[in-house]
Structure formats: structure tokens, C-alpha cells
Simulated scan of single mutants.
Amino acid sequence: MQIYDFDTPVTRRGTGCYKWDETPEDGVIPMWVADMDFKTSPAIIDALHRRVEHGVFGYTLVPDSYYDAVISWFKHRHQWTIDRSWIQYTSGVVPALSVIVKAFTEPGHKVIVQTPVYNCFFSSIRNNGCEVVCSPLISHSSPLTYEMDFADLEEKASDERTKLLILCNPHNPAGRVWSREELARVYNICKEHGVIVVSDEIHNELTYRGNRYVPYGTVDEGLENAIVCTSPSKSFNTAGLQIANIICSKAEWREKIDRAINQNEVCDVNPFGVVALQAAYNESEEWLDQLCEYIYSNYEALSDFFAEHLPQLAFTPLEGTYLVWVDISATHISADELTERLLKEGRVQVNSGTMYDPACGQHFIRINIACPRSQMMEGLRRIAMVINGLTEH
């Protein structure tokens, strides 16, 4: 078995990297944007080298081998059988969500999201003239965990103006990997009220310690009332290559989606994304498994650090993703103020929870731990220095 190196830092500053270069000052540790500071799988790098050596980068015809890779991966790894005709490629999961909202709603319709949730859900809905309907997750303390509020979901799904639910599976930022039983309840509610489930499964490979990602397509078998969006981008750190798939079983729905894809001009994809997806799904499973072990070890190191240095803060158990959701109520300042102080005083950048829930998010921050452990630990030390400085006063 090849052992992959996730400890060696990779210099990203000065490479046009949004995560590192958006803040121009040297010395800032970015723990915000949801990409990883690891090199991707060697198989992906090798495949991209071969494609570069060809030297011509014109418009791309997506080959049959691309579809075969998607189908084989989900069948082998997740026991989900996908028909080739169900797959529609596009440039990313966010564009996919936007075109689906465009295809299945009219301005003034309602779309449900389960907050706190990924911020681009809100813009994908509002940019299409629809109303965001929040169904807040129920939080519990000791430990800090979240579950769906099924009574609230049913109430909001019963509104005749509600057309879609955008599901985050696994959930960003709560770190939940929804169980089959939870997803089955979502299926029953949404089917009864004619609400289409749009499942964003971009974090699907990043699950830990007995928490198994359940493809929504294995709950709603045949995808009679759902559309699934997937991409290798989060799991293999290839977001800049811009490739994603919309999985939809109904031919008439695919026609609507295809029309919206063309109206939004997101029908062409990057040739490197096509190559990278195949190398990820065909040749990189061992790398992925070791990545997940490393990220979870980072989480265990974070847990130990918080227990010793930040015991006043609660945070969610990490079932999936590489994003830790932290309750900062004990600081007695808002998330926006804390993130600003962390950047200015601690030289560390995290996300304010208000991005994911303008209401309760003011008491939370989100921390990205997908980086070499030495870098993460230095970032945590800076966070503790600022927060303990606040609470000591």
C-alpha cells in the first residue's frame, strides 16, 4: 500500500489562490474557504500532466469513459446504481443548483433550506426570484449536535407555493451525515406534498468512523421525486477544475434542466475537469481513504486542543465534511466581531456563522481543518490566544 503525505505544507500564497491570496498580508493562516491545503491524488496529477502534454485545449466532448467512471464509482463505493442517461454534466454544484431552481420554479415560488446551511443556497434561490424558506435544524447541547425538525419541514412543505427542498447531504456546516431513516422521513414528507428534493452531495466522500454517506438516490429509488448533484471537487481538492454532475432519472425533467443549463450558459466544461474526475473515480480510492483518516486525526487533535485550551466553547462532532462548527456564545461577542478580531489580532481567518444562518449564526464560527496538522495547530493556538484574551477580561 502506498502511503500518501498530508503533512508537508504546500505553498499556495502567490498562486492566485482565493483562500490564501484574498487576504494579501503575509502571515495569515486561512481556515475559511472550503478547499483543502493538500495536493490532490497523484493519479489525478499524472492524468493532468498527460493532458497538458497534448498541448491543445479546445472545446471538450465528454467521452463515454467519463460516464462509466461515475457509474462504476457510485455502484462500487455506495451501492447506488445510476443509469447513464441520468447524468448531465455542468461546471459545478452551485451552477447546478441554480439551473435546477430556474428549471422548476417561477418567481415568487418558495424553496426550503435547513439552516444553518451553505450560503450559496440562499443566492441560488434569490437570484431566480424565489423566496428562501428556512426550516431550522434543532440543536442540542452536551455535545452540540443537530437534527432535522420534521414537523416544521412538513408544515413548510405543505405550502402550495413551495416547490423545492435543497438538502445538504452531508451537511455543511453542521457536519452531520444524515442516516437512511432521516432521509426516508424527508422523502415521505416531500413526496406527500409534491416538493422536489434537490440533494447537494458534494461532501459525500468525506465521512468518518462509522458514519456512512447514504445517497439520496438509494432512498428515493429511481429518483421519482428528487435530483442529486455530485462532484469530486471537495473530496479530491479539484474545485478549480470545475466539473459536476446532475443526476436525474426523468427525461422530461432532464429536458427542463438542459434548457436551464443552456440559458445560464454553463453547458461547456473544462477538459481538465473531465480528465480529473476519471482519475479520481478510477484510480484514487486508496488516496481518498487515507485522506479521510488524516482529516479525522486532525479533528481528534482539535478536540484535545479545545479540551485543554478552549473548554468554554462547544463544537459539533465531525461525522462528515472537514468543517467544524463552533459555538462561541461564551465569548459574549458576535461572530462577525470575533472573526474580524481573529483576523486582525490573531492573523487567522475563519468564517462567521452569519453566512450560514443570519439568525442563530451570530453565535458560531466555522473552521476548516483540511490542512497539514502543524498548520492547523498553529491556527488553533492563534484562535485560543484571541478568545482567551477576550474571556480573561
Rank of each mutant, 00 (worst) to 15 (best):
A34S: 14
T8F: 09
E224F: 07
S233T: 09
S98A: 06
R341Y: 10
A370H: 11
T23M: 12
H140R: 15
L318P: 11
L97E: 10
Y299W: 12
Y67V: 09
R12H: 09
V228M: 07
V28K: 04
F150T: 05
P173I: 12
T238P: 05
V274M: 01
D304N: 14
S91F: 01
R209H: 15
S123M: 08
P9V: 04
I87N: 00
R12D: 08
G16T: 05
H76A: 14
V186I: 09
T316L: 05
I29N: 03
G222N: 08
E25W: 05
I365S: 13
T230Q: 07
P136N: 10
Q349R: 15
A96K: 01
D200P: 04
S334M: 12
C371L: 13
P317Q: 05
T15Q: 08
D159Q: 05
E293L: 14
T238F: 02
S72L: 06
N225W: 04
N351L: 15
F364D: 15
D220C: 04
T391K: 06
K110D: 02
L313K: 12
N128D: 10
A307K: 15
Y296K: 06
V99T: 08
V324D: 09
E181L: 12
V117R: 07
E265Y: 04
T238H: 02
V56P: 02
W287L: 04
I387R: 03
C229I: 13
H203I: 13
Q290W: 01
A384T: 01
G273W: 03
H332E: 15
K102N: 10
M376D: 12
A330K: 12
K256D: 00
L343P: 06
S334R: 13
N368G: 10
E224Y: 05
P143F: 11
R77F: 07
E286C: 02
